[in-house]
Design a protein around this nucleic acid. Structure first.
Length: 259
DNA sequence: ATGACGGTGTGGCACCGA
């Protein structure tokens, strides 16, 4: 089975691409971020027709996340219990697989703008609350996936300019320490469990021919718990949707697990 | 130092993203 994450930068605009991608890549679970729409505008009918149950958590204009699953989703939790937050950034749910229940946390991490700003302070508070949430979830659900747009380039391999961008947003020691803290809970960056091409990225700036020049970052991740690690058989970035006519600036990351 | 591109909501631009 396959599990994927994709920041679509407006589901209204990208729904046709999501449906096309799911037709070509009938993954078991897909986490979406940056829906940029309220729940009453979520395209339940189209996604159900494509064979997916959905747990949507949106808001007006910004943010918004959803989980799509071939199996029904239960025990859905929206956002982080320990953090009062008006921004819709996390949806957590359970689905059943032949090997047992799978808990999936799908998140749109805070961008943070720049170190020293209020938004950066919010990012660090949010990261701390997420870590608390995932720690508690792992204690209850050993088979756990944490995926989404992390807005963190975990190390220098994950950015097109590690020297020039050192210390800037997505590259700060504080953000990277939080990423390591998530790993220390007993999670694994599934992409790095396998040999990967150098300069593998999941996001490219729309401007300045970022994609054509491969000036990108790997900021979309799928972390898996110890219990799932032996089942992982591949993790790949699918660059194809970034070549679409009206692409998201992010492209899907796909994890393959043995059945 | 700034803006470049794209989306949203409002209004003829400002904001946010990464």
């Amino acid at each position: 089975m396959q599990i994927a994450t994709w920041n679509v930068n407006s589901l209204s605009v990208r729904l046709p691409q999501v449906l096309d991608w799911l037709a070509a890549n009938p993954v078991e679970v897909l986490g979406l971020q940056e829906l940029k729409l309220t729940d009453d505008k979520f395209p339940h009918l189209e996604l159900e027709a494509a064979g997916y149950h959905c747990a949507a958590f949106g808001q007006k204009t910004y943010n918004g996340v959803a989980l799509l699953s071939r199996q029904p989703l239960r025990d859905v939790v929206r956002n982080l219990p320990d953090l009062a937050d008006e921004q819709a950034r996390v949806v957590t749910a359970t689905l059943d697989t032949p090997q047992g229940p799978l808990r999936v946390v799908n998140a749109y991490f805070v961008n943070g703008q720049a170190p020293g700003t209020d938004k950066f302070a919010y990012k660090l508070r949010w990261l701390a609350a997420l870590t608390t949430w995932v720690r508690a979830q792992l204690a209850q659900h050993p088979r756990l996936v944490l995926m989404g747009d992390f807005n963190v380039a975990p190390d220098d391999r994950d950015t097109y300019d590690p020297v020039g961008l050192a210390g800037t947003i997505h590259h700060t020691p504080e953000e990277r320490a939080h990423f390591q803290e998530l790993l220390a809970l007993g999670l694994h960056d599934s992409f790095r469990l396998f040999e990967q091409a150098q300069k593998s990225f999941s996001w490219w700036d729309y401007r300045m021919l970022g994609f054509q020049k491969n000036r990108g970052m790997r900021i979309d991740h799928i972390l898996i718990s110890d219990a799932l690690k032996p089942l992982a058989s591949a993790c790949q970035i699918d660059r194809a949707p970034r070549k679409n006519k009206q692409p998201s600036d992010h492209t899907p990351v796909v994890l393959s697990l043995h059945d």
